[in-house]
Design a binder for these strands. Structure first.
Lengths: 338, 338
DNA sequence: GATATGCTCTGCATCGTTGAAATCCGCTCG
DNA sequence: CGAGCGGATTTCAACGATGCAGAGCATATC
């Protein structure tokens, strides 16, 4: 026997389709007696509402798309987990879409490709999409951006204060007595806004402490994986003016890659070179040495993003776009001890 | 102006709704002249098919649910990434659902809760669902299991040969001259089938090499995170008969946790204790020392699972349930060097 | 020239649900 | 006692697409 429909339940209970619908959804008041009959019929037939029909009728799916560049980057995995959890609490299901940094893929979901219609809203961690793209977006469904606000884009965005966080990380290195501090991960091009903010914080720390900044100690990277950090660190070790005595990496993978290079070259961490990361991924805590890192409050980020998106789906649809700031802290561990 | 429908396109092009549908889907033959008119209208109006309506009518959504315990466990994140990629190539979209090991959540999607109807098929990495549960499942939509086959369940499953892999890992430890080998991660209870197979391989290696096995060197663990490996290793170091000279951990997180404990206690890896992991996660490669590990071919696993699922969605719906084996290899790195 | 043949193309019904409005019923109130 | 009222229940018409069957038309066939 195929899946029962409202009609089947209605027949069995001897009421109208609409009444069954009302019972199932708890919409209108239904007399005790009928409600009981309907519930019995529902149970006997094992009725489950057909979501596709419901979606069509309601014009909503209860699905939220979460678009991230790479799922196997621990930061995104951990953040994704948090978002899925929060969304579920609010009755939404999250569809994770990884873009591999392919602009087309990002566009498909965010800008309104065919698939876009399946989602009530989108949470995007932008990588390829430029400000120009976003300005052109069909704004019929809400979008919340994770990470830096893209200039004047008319969207909500959730982020931590990257400048302040980077500055704090850098100053911490000064505090433990380091003077020649390098930065790994700058991205001075369109799409690298977040990295640029961290560089700004890095510079600011130098100014605040009246330290001279050697520009050649700022290393740029296209990607943020272990391998990139390892390479960058190798280059720094061969720096003409000698290696730095501390490194601020713009994410934890870069930092772990850098540590790998240091240790395999016989450089001690933190004695010879101290290392700070960014993101506070689980693995960093169990690395040897454990990684000092900027720890964004992922749970709050998730909460703010979901909350904001759901507000827009509801009555608060027309509020002004907001910038929401999540807290962070500097988790000090072995890689900067002493 | 709201989203255009087939009807709007039809009006504009001066043809019937049905013809527009035919053009959009490439179903029937349509004359060049009309096709051009329709395509122009589609372009002008920016028509996008309404997926909810299409889903209702077709009875399919093009969505596949991937149910995994924890997304921020790197193995699952990497596997998820591979599956998303393969599915996309076949025109399917993956909805990732993490269960946090909550049986109810797993049931919701797999056993046929309301949400289940949204998916054409399910790929499940089972954790909580017992064999009894699965036997009771409504089999109207295909299910592919990742990992060990649960006894006589009538489902396809994709896995690597855990016994052989575990045996190879253990024998490798003998090969490099270790004699007192511990195992971290056994789970001698329902739901721990995969761990049990690895333990079987571990035992088998001892028999094959005619080594005496000290049962007290097999440590059980509820969970497979860094912390669990760290604790287990701490216990082993305090073993009454002295610490082992090698450890086989049932996943890489356990192994990294174990290494952390070893190094922080001043025990050298691999000189004093060699360590082997399982899963080959990215981070293990950049750890110091880099981690020797069993490397399942995640890409093949993903490919087999998707391929099989799609076959069941199509004409091959009634084939016998199959066991599909993906290859693996032992990636030998520093943690067992010498 | 009439019938058969092969394509295009269209109309209608339908997928299963819910919004809106109509109906029904029992009760209160003037 | 009839109008008025409010809550319970039903009827009707979508939501936007596709399956199916058949209409329309030009060409092929004898």
């Amino acid at each position: 026997m195929s899946t029962p429909r409202l009609r089947d339940v209605a027949e069995r209970a001897g009421v109208s389709i609409r009444t069954v619908s009302n019972v199932v959804n708890g919409y209108a008041r239904v007399s005790e007696e009928r409600r009981a009959r309907v519930e019995a019929a529902v149970a006997e037939l094992g009725y489950q509402p057909n979501l596709m029909a419901r979606n069509l009728r309601r014009g909503r799916t209860g699905l939220i798309a979460l678009v991230v560049p790479e799922l196997d980057v621990p930061y995104f995995a951990e953040l994704t987990r948090a978002i899925i959890t929060k969304a579920r609490q609010q009755g939404y299901t999250v569809v994770v879409d990884q873009t591999d940094g392919e602009p087309d893929r990002e566009r498909e979901i965010v800008m309104g490709g065919a698939m876009a219609a399946m989602f009530d809203g989108v949470i995007l961690s932008p990588l390829a999409l430029s400000q120009t793209d976003l300005a052109r977006r069909d704004n019929s469904r809400p979008l919340v951006l994770l990470g830096e606000r893209i200039a004047e884009s008319p969207y909500d965005h959730v982020a931590i204060d990257n400048v302040a966080a980077a500055r704090a990380a850098t100053e911490h290195l000064f505090d433990i007595g380091r003077s020649r501090v390098a930065a790994i991960g700058d991205q001075p091009w369109e799409g690298g806004e977040t990295a640029q903010l961290r560089t700004a914080g890095f510079r600011l720390a130098h100014e605040a402490r009246r330290r001279r900044l050697d520009e050649s100690l700022i290393v740029t990277n296209r990607r943020f994986h272990h391998a990139d950090g390892a390479e960058a660190m190798a280059a720094l070790l061969d720096h003409p003016k000698g290696p730095p005595d501390a490194v601020f990496c713009y994410n934890d993978l870069l930092a772990l890659g850098a540590i790998r290079t240091l240790l395999s070259r016989g450089v001690r961490v933190p004695e010879d070179v101290a290392v700070v990361g960014f993101d506070d991924i689980e693995t960093g805590r169990y690395n040897t040495p454990s990684l000092t890192t900027v720890s964004p409050d992922k749970s709050t980020i998730a909460w703010l993003a979901i909350d904001r998106l759901i507000a827009r789906l509801g009555e608060r649809a027309d509020d002004e776009p907001t910038e929401l700031w999540a807290p962070y802290e500097l988790a000090i561990r072995e890689s900067t001890a002493g």
